[in-house]
Simulated scan of single mutants.
Amino acid sequence: MTRRPGLPIGRAAGAPVYLSWTWALVAAFVVLTFGPQIQRALPHLGAGAYAVALGYAVLLALSVLAHDIAHAVVGRAFGDRAEEIVLTLWGGHTQFRGPQAGPWGTVATAMAGPLANLAVAGLAWLAALTLPTASVAGLLLDITVWANLLLAAFNALPGMPLDGGRLVESAVWASTGSRDRGLVAAGWSGRAIAVLLVGAALAGPLLRGQRSDLLMSLLLAWVGVILWRGAGASVERGRWGGRLAVLTLASLEIPAVAVPAEGSVAHALRLADGGRRAAVAVDATGTPRGVLDLTAVVHRPADELERTPVSAACTALAPGAVVRRADLPASGADLVARLGEPDLPVRVLTDARDGVASVLPRDTLLAAVHATRHSTDDPSAKENRA
């Protein structure tokens, strides 16, 4: 069974939504930080001020959820289907099935999050105008406004792994035609933002002649480290994607022919041109059920092959193994990421009419990735590229 990333709390834009167990740390930090402040502002609440602070944490989670749902909804409109939305210690993330959108779709998907937070901030501000500030509802609306403005502004910074990093990625992508170069540029931009953030946390108070707040300095430094790691992952992904650009779907797939599952192996081999093409067993409705294992039949006597049904010599297809060829990326890291699941040893690719087009064994993909890695690590290859 697949391990869940947290507590399931619903679905949005066709994707399951989870609350990570690490969110409890965020809630605890918010309660311990804001509880005493609320108690001073509204002394009549007493210990109830900490319950209001917990409300702060819940509103923060809902603001992050609105941010990520916006990503999922707009991404879906551009062909990116969200697999899951998770609220975590670091805020939240929307995991997409595979990048389908181009530069403009990527920008729209990325900026949907900050725009959603601006919309929530605006609605909360309008509602707060009707309430007294020194009230529980007024405080909750006020924190909603500021939390969403902060989320929007912070995520719009132009560097990975923030949403603004997608702007940098897409600008370089559109101008060079290479998404991988865009990822590298956005990663370095994110590293610069991380350095500036840590520098501001450590040196800012000293330059202003003020005493630094240890907790705030540690928090900003911690955020800077998280940003550096995320930016570094973007740089590495872009570099690795550049090396994988030579891998194309057309070079990896094996042409295939559909054969009746209840027909003989000998007949299937004749249809498959003696094994020059893969043979995919289909049922009476034309649905692929398995791939003929050529290694198991290649040395069998001819009379035995005439008696053996294809279904008895097939590798069964796992759920999700049949995909439309047009739904797969054409090349590069996106293709490798989409096809690398260990539970799918072979895929059957279908054409626009759902007919059998080709097969793609996972071992073929791994061998190609391995060969690419070694060819790019070869000193002579590096010298030739230089």
Rank of each mutant, 00 (worst) to 15 (best):
A231R: 08
D354G: 06
A28L: 12
A268Y: 13
A82F: 08
R347S: 09
L339R: 09
Q39L: 11
R353T: 13
G230L: 12
W21P: 00
G55A: 02
S189M: 04
A72V: 11
A268H: 09
A231Y: 09
L87E: 06
A203I: 02
M1S: 14
P5Y: 05
A101W: 04
A27Y: 10
A231H: 10
V86I: 13
L252S: 14
H44A: 12
V259S: 11
S170N: 03
R76I: 08
P8L: 02
V168W: 06
A47V: 14
A13I: 11
G199I: 03
L151P: 02
P255I: 03
S217T: 15
G263N: 07
I69H: 01
L206V: 09
A82G: 11
L126N: 02
L115G: 00
G165D: 01
L365E: 06
A261F: 12
I9Q: 05
A128E: 00
A261E: 15
L54N: 08
G159L: 05
L54Y: 12
A82D: 07
I69K: 01
D293V: 03
D142F: 07
R3G: 07
A258F: 13
A203G: 05
G165A: 01
A121W: 03
R229Y: 14
G263F: 04
T133C: 00
A28F: 07
L141F: 01
L141D: 01
T285H: 00
V64N: 00
S331T: 12
G14R: 09
F34P: 00
R338D: 01
G230W: 07
P301W: 08
T2E: 09
V107I: 15
E169P: 00
S212I: 01
L271W: 10
S20T: 13
G122I: 10
L207K: 03
S20Y: 06
A156M: 10
A27T: 15
V145H: 06
E253Q: 15
S178C: 08
T315D: 05
I9C: 04
S189A: 13
G204S: 10
I85L: 14
S135A: 09
A77K: 06
D378W: 07
A108V: 13
P319M: 08
W21V: 11
S358V: 02
V323D: 01
M160H: 11
V257M: 08
L202V: 14
G241T: 10
L118E: 02
A284P: 02
S251R: 12
A53C: 06
M216A: 11
E304Q: 11
A128K: 03
A124R: 01
V346L: 03
L215C: 01
G138E: 04
